[in-house]
Amino acid sequence: MNKTIRLLILFLILFWATPLMAHDVTSKDHALLANGDLWAYLWVGAKHMLTGYDHLLFLLGVIFYLRKTSDVIKFITVFTIGHSITLLSATYLGIQINEYLIDAIIGFSVFYKGFENLGYFEKHLKFRSPNLLLMVWVFGLIHGLGLSSRLQSFENGSDRIIHKIITFNIGVEFGQIAALIPIVYIISLIRKNKHYPAFYKAVNTYLLIAGIALICFQLILYLKA
């Protein structure tokens, strides 16, 4: 097995292993939050970021475009600020937007990143892509609404609610860091490989497909509901 294939498999395993282990745990999270202290919110927040593959796919798209560590930090910080604003404010104010529509928009953000990374704005639409940092911030706001709707789906009680929201948010950031470390590491390894261009196109084309699939899936659920 050549080096490229080994790296590719390592990437796929690392990227998907956590969701595989921890998916479909909503009811257990429900009980955990119902009984647990703030640590439970930290844990559930981190887990939902790690198991939320739509969030991770978007982050993957963001990371793929970036080469310098300082850019990675800058873009992730902007994304973090964006989703924290809506996660904190929407949860505190009890604002709930239809979760299927929000998830469909998050699916669109995945599609958007693949589209942008492949240079399709210039190639097919004949104009430059919108400001990258601004779009990451805007999509960060959308992702925060999705995280908020998930948090509001739990029985959070009334005691120390602000602490719970903030702790959940901190947990989300820990989950994000935990997800980003292997992603950034593996991408940096693959980037040195001679087949990186093919890998870049493959993953970003996959983001287009996954984004469309997520949009369709969520819209079907919305229409069915």
Binding site: L8, L12, W16, P19, L20, H23, D24, T26, Y53, H195, P197, A198, F199, K201, A202, V203, T205, Y206, I209, A210, F217, L221
Partner: peptide, 25 residues
């Protein structure tokens, strides 16, 4: 809540990415 089983999602994703990779390569 309707969820795609994770193994289905994983399997399809791996197949798509590998196919795309070899196609672009």
């Amino acid at each position: 809540d309707i969820k795609i089983p994770t193994y289905v999602y994983l399997l399809i994703s791996v197949i798509i990415i590998l196919l795309l990779f070899f196609a672009f390569k």
